[in-house]
Computed example of a mutant assay.
Amino acid sequence: MFAALRHDERGTVTAEFAIVVPAVLAVLGLVVGGISLAAHRITLVSVSAEVARFEARGDADLAEEQLAVLGDRVMVDREDVGALLCVTLRSRPAGGPLAHLAVESRSCAARTDAGATR
């Protein structure tokens, strides 16, 4: 009786499916999360460059408008490095398991009042 059950292949597809589906979903979740992190980083790079340029030339209002686009989840640090103004933006993604990762971008621009030319 047990010898007959050993050669019976009923249910093997279901067992394989039950093992493969969670692995595929985990990989898919990591890929989507990675793309989300990359898109968030690209946004921070772009905004930090614009904010650094605006503030370096004295347009604080335009810089605040750019920062308002990101919302209140972004921390802004400013640093003077010689004739440069450097802006660092730090943020965490909206939610999920990847929310524990911090994304950061730093951009510098020459101050126009320090003798820089356009």
Rank of each mutant, 00 (worst) to 15 (best):
H40S: 14
R41E: 14
V45F: 04
A39V: 09
V27I: 14
P22A: 07
Q66M: 08
A56I: 01
F54T: 03
A63Q: 02
L67Q: 03
V24F: 14
L30D: 14
R41M: 08
P22Q: 08
V31P: 12
Q66G: 06
L37I: 11
R57L: 00
F54C: 04
V47S: 00
A60V: 10
L62H: 04
S48E: 01
A68T: 10
L30A: 11
D61L: 06
G58W: 00
I35V: 14
L44G: 04
A68S: 14
A49R: 00
V51A: 01
V27S: 13
L67C: 06
H40M: 10
A56M: 03
A38M: 13
V51W: 04
V24K: 10
G33A: 12
E55K: 07
S48F: 00
A39N: 12
E65T: 05
R57G: 04
L37C: 13
R57F: 01
T43G: 12
Q66R: 09
A56K: 05
R53C: 01
Q66S: 09
A26P: 10
L25V: 10
S36I: 08
V45W: 04
G33D: 15
A68P: 11
D59I: 04
G33Y: 09
A60P: 11
T43I: 07
V32I: 14
A63E: 03
E65C: 02
V24R: 09
G58D: 06
G34N: 09
V24I: 10
I35M: 15
G58N: 05
L25K: 05
T43Q: 11
T43K: 06
L28V: 10
I42T: 13
V31R: 11
A49D: 05
A56W: 00
A60S: 13
G29Y: 11
V27G: 13
L44R: 04
I42E: 15
E64H: 08
S46T: 08
E55G: 09
V51R: 01
I35L: 15
I42W: 14
L67D: 02
L62M: 11
D59V: 04
S36N: 14
R57S: 02
S48W: 00
E50G: 05
P22N: 08
D59F: 02
I42C: 15
V47W: 03
G34T: 05
V47A: 05
L67A: 01
G58F: 03
A23M: 13
E50K: 01
V51K: 02
